[in-house]
């Protein structure tokens, strides 16, 4: 077998080291490439912030939620009444017990002149 001098081993080791260092540099370079970084930043902010905000969610639950709900509740009626107010005004149920009138014959009437039923009471006060 051929014998190698220790220098050869040293050189080999240095070469390996150089390769190892070069790999690191090479890895650094690809890391800078768009794909990996894009993947990393995306997932990391999503999970972590989601968990961190949870405690603050209590803050959101403190007032913001009800406040927002109230705000919506306040806004809706403001809009709804406009639509609701219109129909009710023309539809006030008349108090027929206070509506007096006359028949074509001049007899006194009480109630809805267009009622489907007409009840005539022939009577005396005595």
């Amino acid at each position: 077998m051929k014998r190698y001098s220790p220098v050869v081993f040293i050189l080999l080791a240095m070469a390996l080291l150089a390769v190892a260092c070069g790999g690191t540099v090479a890895n650094t370079a690809p890391t800078a490439t768009p794909p990996p970084p894009t993947e990393k930043p995306a997932p990391s902010p999503t999970p972590e912030p989601t968990e961190t905000p949870l405690p603050p969610t209590a803050t959101a639950a403190k007032a913001p939620s009800p406040a927002a709900t109230d705000a919506v509740a306040m806004e809706k009626p403001t809009v709804a009444p406009t639509d609701t107010v219109a129909p009710p005004s023309p539809t006030p149920a008349p108090d027929w017990l206070s509506v007096e009138g006359r028949t074509a014959d001049g007899l006194p009437t009480l109630g809805n002149p267009d009622a489907p039923v007409v009840v005539v009471d022939y009577s005396d006060f005595l």
Binding site: P94, D95, W96, L97, T103, L107, P108, T109, L110, G111, N112, P113, D114, A115, P116, V117, V118, V119, V120, D121, Y122, S123, D124, L126
Partner: peptide, 18 residues
């Protein structure tokens, strides 16, 4: 029951018995 709801029109015709 009926006049208040507008379903009946009540008419009075006098009878002069006295």
């Amino acid at each position: 029951t009926y006049v208040k709801s507008g379903e009946v029109l009540l008419v009075f015709n006098p009878i002069l018995d006295h």
